[in-house]
Amino acid sequence: MKFLPLLLLLPLVLLSGCSTSYQSNGFSGGYSETQLDDNVFKVSFRGNGYTRRERVSDFTLLRSAQLAVENGYKYFLVVDSNSYTSNSTYTTPTTSNTTASAYSTGNYAYGNATTTTTGGQTYNISKPSSSNTIVCFKEKPKNGFSYNAEIIFKNITKKYGIEHSAN
């Protein structure tokens, strides 16, 4: 029974060292979306402290493509895009340990002590996020740069080895 609390913490520890996977928004980040009109969506992806900005940008684009396909569209335009990073720091606790020895001879006492201090390291944590506002189309629009949702979906899932279907 002593090890039960440690066993319960093991999955959290194992997951905490990984970058955010392609998933719906959760504890370690992920994607979310809001439908703004019939064919307009705001898509966001939030990474954790182990996630690179390129991965966050790719997963925002991947979710945009997936939404387009899921809603019966073949193309989409990114009409607004934002990328940002939240920065924080964490400083480990400081611990000091002192060992000492003393001895005496006659009326005199002698001794020495050694103090060792550990901890106090500060870590910078950057959590990247990205959002796209997209407009979806069934036919390739003549104005503006558009993405082919199926091609984006295929290439980004291949790049990251993601097992998902576009529909």
Results as ranks from 00 to 15, higher is better:
residue 136 C to L: 11
residue 142 K to D: 10
residue 119 G to Q: 09
residue 3 F to R: 10
residue 89 T to G: 01
residue 73 Y to C: 10
residue 24 S to P: 00
residue 82 N to F: 03
residue 7 L to R: 05
residue 129 S to F: 07
residue 41 F to K: 03
residue 136 C to G: 03
residue 102 A to K: 13
residue 132 N to S: 07
residue 156 I to Q: 04
residue 19 S to I: 00
residue 48 N to R: 03
residue 149 A to W: 05
residue 148 N to L: 11
residue 88 S to K: 08
residue 152 I to L: 12
residue 37 D to E: 06
residue 139 E to C: 04
residue 155 N to K: 06
residue 142 K to Q: 12
residue 96 S to Y: 05
residue 153 F to Q: 12
residue 107 N to P: 00
residue 89 T to W: 01
residue 42 K to P: 00
residue 76 F to W: 00
residue 30 G to K: 01
residue 1 M to P: 06
residue 167 N to E: 11
residue 69 V to S: 08
residue 53 R to A: 15
residue 12 L to Q: 02
residue 119 G to H: 11
residue 13 V to F: 15
residue 148 N to E: 15
residue 153 F to N: 04
residue 141 P to Y: 11
residue 19 S to A: 12
residue 131 S to H: 04
residue 64 S to Q: 11
residue 72 G to D: 11
residue 4 L to P: 02
residue 127 K to L: 02
residue 159 K to Q: 13
residue 73 Y to V: 03
residue 10 L to C: 02
residue 28 S to C: 01
residue 73 Y to N: 11
residue 69 V to Q: 03
residue 162 I to S: 10
residue 164 H to Q: 12
residue 149 A to E: 10
residue 84 Y to A: 04
residue 41 F to S: 02
residue 32 S to D: 09
residue 137 F to I: 03
residue 13 V to H: 01
residue 125 I to E: 06
residue 98 T to K: 04
residue 135 V to K: 09
residue 15 L to K: 09
residue 17 G to I: 14
residue 160 Y to V: 09
residue 153 F to W: 10
residue 20 T to G: 08
residue 55 R to W: 06
residue 20 T to A: 05
residue 121 Q to N: 13
residue 88 S to G: 11
residue 105 T to W: 05
residue 123 Y to V: 14
residue 147 Y to G: 10
residue 38 D to H: 08
